[in-house]
Design a protein around this nucleic acid. Structure first.
Lengths: 340, 340
DNA sequence: TTGAAAGCGTTACCAT
DNA sequence: ATGGTAACGCTTTCAA
């Protein structure tokens, strides 16, 4: 169906070797011959098969991207950044939404291996590092993005989650909040754990105490988060501020507050993390610790390409980017605490 | 680096043909031999190369997905549905965000062709149909999703956009609104055009007039949409209701209203289209015409698979799914119009 | 400056 | 029931 290198060679009256050489310019071809070949390629609408050339030991020019869920705005946005950088370098991106499920991760890893992808960007948490052993042993380049899996010997591009947590805390402290609670993600996700830890540290540094039971892991999706927030906000000792580990959690918190007729930020301030589209379309707009999403995506691809070219020199990179606090309207000064 | 079929054959003490036959069961292999082979495969962690088998005329088990922008929640959600259905059938999804740019579309089409994808799902609007001629001529299966490009001879899975527009209009009419305006997308996108047309039709059917200059194409992103909405809502003859052709536009409208100290839905009702995550996290929650996103994605893949297997029988399918109105809090009865 | 031919990892036809 | 081998479309070494 598709024209092959043989068709082109025949049409141009040269050997397939010559055609190959004009395609990838690995040796000098006379202008005249080159013109003939180019002409034939054009006429036949010839596209060299990546399959065949990959089989000969060249690259497949495709890389795999593993995320928990592409329909989650954070991962959609970071995937977009990754995709752009890939395209610029001539690579395609294969999408893999894992839902954090072990068997799914395994299946996708299998797929990617079978397709001989040149590299893998790992932005999904929770998988026991050993699943990767096979891939890594076979020399596939891997870089972790936005999440770091303990014990995985691969590059990592991260936001400084701990520092981000600290920034959130400091912002709240500077507004006079002393009684806060945290809406966290699954504790097995390192980035979330780090955020909470940073937040707690800053709290401790201010000689305040953040009770462990004020840290609520919300693993059951939006609905679960809202319910937990409702419970929290209707408790006797209602916190004046909430730190949500991502924008979705923050929005759930706001919905919970609304449900209880509390207003944000007057009655309760909310600081979020990520700063996706959701942070800017939310009402009130979310004050959020922003991850440099576009930059992270770009860097991940560049690091991966380097590794693929073997320029890594064996050193495992771990690049940590500074987040930035974006102040919108979901936080304000704490009201006097009402002691009864 | 990777074990090959030769390694397995050697380890099992059989020929590569036999190994191949146990892999794809195309002929009877004695249980004993089969066991030996399976054993060897296991030991060597052998993964058949999709590349090589595709080169032999089999499938590549990968399909391309073209969308305008994966970071747009609607496309992220529909891609997720597509991805799931692909995985279930053993296919990988290659992501292509086109930004509606012609050269990007061309480049991606080129990539996909080189990689010999088995099929392409086209969910990006605006491209002159002829770009596809090459691909289609080469026999690649194609289905259009959520958007239909005039003159492209390929299956299409669509929401009934016109009917959706009508539903939006009827909802507003039933609430007593008589003075409405529309926030539209680029007029070259068929789905958007249909929505507007349906809306206008229903308006006409009610013996009302929808002035063409009340239909605002918002091509400049969120910011542009908000500004247009501000202008609209601060005009003398302020509409009591807005129909936004997607959730992002609806949210821009709400932000515009807020900026002008108008409240939604008391002062102005807003009906949206799509019903993505944004519709449910927005405040107020968006009354929206819901596209059956998951269903559409699934159907697109199934149709594509059918076409790939040649089960199409040459008939070009055009499946139109009924949207559904989801009522939330962004619409309410019209207030008495204040004539001066 | 160009060509012949081996080889990449499969599949499938033809033998045995 | 199993094996030998040509072929798929390309890259690259060796020769000319």
């Amino acid at each position: 169906m598709n024209a092959t290198i043989y068709d082109v060679a025949e049409a141009a009256g040269v050997s397939i070797a010559t055609v190959s050489y004009v395609i990838n310019g690995k040796r000098k071809v006379s202008d005249k011959t080159k013109a003939k070949v180019l002409d034939a390629m054009e006429k036949l609408d010839y596209r060299p098969s990546v399959l065949a050339s990959a089989l000969m030991g060249k690259q497949t020019y495709s890389i795999g991207m593993m995320v928990p869920d592409i329909s989650n705005p954070f991962f959609a946005e970071i995937s977009r950044a990754v995709e752009d950088e890939c395209r610029l370098a001539g690579y395609s991106l294969i999408l893999c939404s894992t839902d954090h499920q072990k068997d799914r991760i395994g299946q996708y890893l299998h797929f990617l291996q079978q397709k001989s992808v040149d590299g893998i960007i790992l932005a999904t948490g929770i998988l026991d590092g050993s699943s990767l052993d096979g891939i890594l042993a076979k020399g596939t380049a891997v870089v972790q993005l936005a999440r770091e899996i303990p014990g995985v010997p691969a590059h990592a591009i991260l936001a400084d989650d701990r520092e981000g947590g600290r920034m959130a805390a400091k912002h709240l402290l500077s507004l006079g909040h002393r009684n806060a609670a945290v809406l966290a993600e699954d504790a097995r996700i390192t980035s979330s754990k780090e955020r909470v830890q940073g937040f707690a540290e800053a709290w401790t540094d201010a000689d305040l105490r953040l009770d462990p039971d004020r840290i609520l892991p919300c693993t059951g999706g939006l609905e679960d988060a809202r319910q937990q927030a409702v419970q929290l906000l209707s408790s006797r000792n209602r916190p004046s501020a909430l730190f949500a580990c991502n924008d979705l959690l923050a929005i759930s918190a706001i919905q919970a507050a609304r449900e209880l007729n509390l207003s944000v930020p007057e009655d309760v301030s909310v600081v979020s993390f990520d700063n996706t589209l959701l942070a800017s379309v939310s009402f009130p707009g979310l004050t959020a610790v922003a991850q440099p999403i576009a930059h992270m995506g770009k860097l991940a691809v560049r690091t991966l390409l380097q590794e693929m070219k073997g320029e890594g020199a064996g050193v495992q990179q771990r690049i940590v980017l500074r987040p930035e606090l974006v102040i919108r309207s979901s936080t304000s000064t704490a009201v006097q605490e009402q002691h009864t």
